[in-house]
Design a protein around this nucleic acid. Structure first.
Length: 268
DNA sequence: CTTCCTTTGAAGCGA
DNA sequence: TCGCTTCAAAGGAAG
């Protein structure tokens, strides 16, 4: 049934012809991360999704509605075609396109009742926000706030490095027999810098498409929606870090080194 | 149970 | 415009 939905969604997709030049490598232009930024106000359909979403959750009604009522645009399927047939097909999320929520939001697609949502949509179920709410909610204002909290969070689209990490993490874990993510990420960071521009370009392109897809799926969404919600480490701790070497990124920033290529001694 | 750690890149925010 | 901050993922460690 799940697969049925997936394939139905795929069939839906097939209504759109592949763009010319699909499947070709993107042409990286320095600096990569800038050059690959999505052009403003040019929404295009795009890809990336994991096939094996560990905890699929029902798509929220309001988002489904958005999908239903948004006028169809001619989607850019270059990502899909390149990922499934080109060299980028080696990436583990090759099949992700099939599960994309724009196609999977069941109720929005006639005859396709079941759906696997985009993992960017994360209900606050059982998480801290909701739990803390349950303890205290009584007043109207609080119940209103609770409703807000119950709204599923739409996560940020993954950037190039995040996509790279997702792909390479398992490999590094297998090679190094490490499990701690902080250590793994350090290794991945170094490997990222060791990649050629062409190799990195794959991920920048993927990330660009991911952003465009995200833009199409959640037109009103902004990163500010999640800004400040996580409440991470305290300011004090952050300022503390200015006295020690800190991360390579911070260190490079502090010493005015090239963020893309330079490595500073203390952070090696 | 919750937050931190650690990475890079995108985006928000205040000056 | 610039510099700083936050958040995306991940999972073990620590509080």
């Amino acid at each position: 049934m799940y697969k049925e939905t997936v394939y139905s969604a795929f069939n839906l997709l097939m209504h759109y012809p592949p763009p010319s030049g699909a499947g070709q490598h993107p042409q990286p232009q320095p600096p990569l991360h800038k050059a690959n930024q999505a052009p403003h106000g040019v929404p295009q359909l795009s890809l990336y999704e994991h096939f094996n979403s560990p905890h699929p959750t029902p798509a929220p009604a309001d988002i489904s509605q958005k999908q239903v009522h948004r006028p169809l645009q001619t989607p850019d399927l270059s990502g899909f075609y390149s990922l499934t047939s080109g060299s980028m097909g080696q990436l583990p999320h090759t099949v992700s396109w099939f599960t994309h929520p724009s196609l999977m939001l069941g109720s929005s697609v006639p005859g396709h009742p079941a759906a696997i949502p985009h993992p960017a949509i994360v209900p606050p179920s059982g998480k801290q926000e909701l739990q803390s709410f349950d303890r205290n909610l009584k007043t109207q204002a609080e119940s209103k706030a609770e409703k807000e909290a119950k709204k599923p969070t739409i996560k940020k689209p993954l950037n190039a490095f995040m996509l790279y990490m997702k792909e390479m993490r398992a490999k590094v874990i297998a090679e190094c027999t490490l499990k701690e993510s902080a250590a793994i990420n350090q290794i991945l960071g170094r490997r990222w810098h060791a990649l050629s521009r062409e190799e990195q370009a794959k991920y920048y392109e993927l990330a660009r498409k991911e952003r465009q897809l995200h833009m199409q799926l959640y037109p009103g969404w902004s990163a500010r929606d999640n800004y400040g919600k996580k409440k991470r480490r305290s300011r004090e701790k952050h300022q503390e870090s200015t006295t020690d070497p800190g991360s390579p990124k911070k260190c490079r920033a502090r010493f005015g080194l090239n963020q893309q290529t330079d490595w500073c001694g203390p952070c090696r």
